[in-house]
Amino acid sequence: MEVEWSLVWEIFPLSILAALLAGLVCPQVGNFLFLRRTGFYGVALPQFAACGVAFGFAIMPWWVAHVGIGGLDLDTALEDTHAAVNYHMAWAGVFTFGGLGILYLFGQKPGSEAARIAAAFALASAGTILFAHASPTGEIFVHELLRGSILVIGLHEFETLAVAFGFVALAMWWFQRGLLLVSFDPDTARVLGLGVRRYEALLVVLIGLTVTIGSLTVGPVVLFALLVLPPLAASHLARSLRSFRWISSLIGLGSAALGLQLSFAFDLPLGPTIVAGAGILLGLSLLPFLSLGKSRT
């Protein structure tokens, strides 16, 4: 069926705004993952969030009986209610921040960071499958939630996304100087009196918040793509840190816009088209080098 463009804004305002907001904000967080050479966090952390959601599903019968989810019975809690969404986000958050904490602690020991993240990803993936297996709704319902289809985003989810991503964007702007210096040259940051541990903790909170909320609203795959691909594309084009940040967010925004266009024009699921959009823009960012026949160092 062909999608009538006149209806798109009327019916999908939340989906469009959520996609554009994610496209704008995720790359700002992804910039730090990229520059700190921890891009793999972008893969591992959404998987932690997914594992948390699956775990939440698995223990939901016990939780409803002993703790309670907004006074809901189990059947209602398994539906798409505000309290249930908050419950899933809380578990996603616990696992994301827990994963970040573990990676940070192990990061103090010698060894390969990439191997640590790969191991964490493998464990979180296995955990997701096993917990989903034990879920009272079976795996399919868990997978459906983890897909986080932006097309069917509810008002409560959108409000949560808007508040969380708004906070992340504001914090990224407000603390940009400290976050940059602490990442680039932590010793000089200390000499200048910037609280390195405080800024590191802030960055962990911002990454964790983005991943937790993003995983359940836009979905882990879209989140990973928007965290990693725009900074990678921007690194090919930017000639300063300022332009890197702008280009990265513009590419994120462009990926979302292109994804929306592809989805509505060809009637395709929105999440994968945003990833495809980001991939197209990444490919385009390489064109100047192909035409010059050389790559920048």
């Binding site: 603390f175 100087r177 940059l180 040259d185 940051a189 200048l192 910037l194 840190l241 300022r242 160092t297």
Partner: peptide
């Protein structure tokens, strides 16, 4: 790390970060 796409001026500006307001 040379991965940071900083200009010379952006690096030098960091020296003043201790004196500036947050944003």
């Amino acid at each position: 790390d040379r991965l940071y796409p900083l200009t010379v001026l952006e690096v030098v500006r960091m020296g003043a970060f201790g004196r500036l307001r947050h944003w």
